[in-house]
Simulated assay, not measured.
Amino acid sequence: MPVDEDKYPEESGRRRFIKGVVGSATLAGVTAGAGASVNLATSAPGAGGGTVEFVGISLVDGPAPRGMPIIPVEIGSDGTLQGLFPEAEEVQQQGRTVTIAETDVGGLTYSSSWFQYCGVQQYEGTQPGADADNAFLAKPDGTYEWMSDLSQGDPLTVDNFSDYEEWGNGIGKSGLGKPAMANWRNTEGGRAMPIQVLRSPEVSKMANGEGKYSELPGDVQSYIGAATDQDFMAWLDKCTHFCCVPGFKTSDYPGAEDGVYCQCHQSIYDPFTPVKEQFVALPRPD
């Protein structure tokens, strides 16, 4: 899979969305580099950094430290797919007025801080209140042959995935779901977030706690129930190791056939075992 150019960041019905604000964690600093490491002592202050709890698709193998965050999906009246981004609100933190973006999704705090790693925290669309497009826009980069019928930037729609219960690409099992590569939070002149969209019959089973999914923690299942719709789910497609862009059903590497595989260092993620985890979000420009 391609490596996104920001590997080294530049310096510088079930649905229940309830607006709410929770205090952000301690501010941290960022140094440019492959790991974009946190340096509390010497870096300039930003906003929205610190320890963050998120729900993501799980890491099952490889050197990546954690899963990738799941984006709540919304479907427009015309069938277009969109991602929910929390509304901006000003709060006082450490004697400063800081703009944050947090809301309640399924009983958990969903925050723009979920996406503050791998340089994404510097994208304009990550900023609370940014004038960004929430539609999922097609990125036909050759990963999936079916997307060759779409043009770059076409809005993805429900109809694009009508064959999701049978779709296959010769890797792993057919009928497990139909994926797409897309961009999200597009801004004029800015960079969009790379995301992956998946429509799978397993999504509604997760949301309803059916079969093996009855063992999902209650808060994770509640989040999945609120963050998915019509068997659609989506996640920020940035490997948490070195910021590469993985793909669902893109490799026959052992154990990755029906998972999300990052060929850079063989990390494998499973979209069907969502987990709640923590990480230290990097501060965005303030």
Rank of each mutant, 00 (worst) to 15 (best):
D78Q: 12
A281C: 07
S58G: 13
R199H: 05
G211T: 03
C244H: 13
T273Y: 05
G29L: 06
N208Y: 04
N186V: 09
E202C: 00
Y117K: 01
Q263H: 12
G177P: 03
S162E: 12
K238S: 13
K19W: 11
I224P: 07
Q127H: 12
S43T: 11
N169Y: 11
P201A: 13
Q230I: 01
D6Q: 06
E10A: 15
S111E: 04
Y269D: 04
M206T: 01
Q263P: 06
S214G: 15
W114E: 00
Q122Y: 15
Q93D: 08
F248A: 05
Q196R: 02
R14F: 13
I100G: 01
P201K: 13
L108S: 13
D286S: 13
G189M: 01
V52Q: 14
A234K: 13
V22L: 15
L236Q: 12
A182M: 02
I195R: 08
L59Y: 06
G67E: 03
G168P: 01
R15C: 02
L84T: 11
K178G: 01
R191Q: 12
V245H: 15
E215I: 03
D219H: 15
K205Q: 14
S214P: 07
D237I: 00
G247A: 08
G76F: 04
I75H: 13
A34F: 10
A281E: 09
I100C: 02
E124N: 05
D6N: 12
P246Y: 13
L108D: 06
A192N: 07
D61Q: 09
L40I: 14
D159L: 05
Q263N: 12
K19G: 08
V220E: 14
Y123M: 04
H265W: 06
P63M: 07
D286E: 14
F232D: 05
G49H: 10
V197W: 14
G50P: 05
A281D: 12
R191E: 15
T273S: 14
P271A: 06
F248I: 02
T80W: 10
G50E: 06
P285E: 06
V98S: 04
L59M: 09
E257G: 07
G168I: 01
G62E: 10
S222Q: 03
F17P: 00
A28S: 11
G119F: 05
V30G: 11
P283A: 05
P194R: 06
P283R: 06
E166G: 07
L198S: 07
Q152I: 11
V30P: 02
V203W: 07
D133Q: 03
I195P: 09
K205G: 03
G29M: 09
S251M: 01
P179D: 05
S267Q: 09
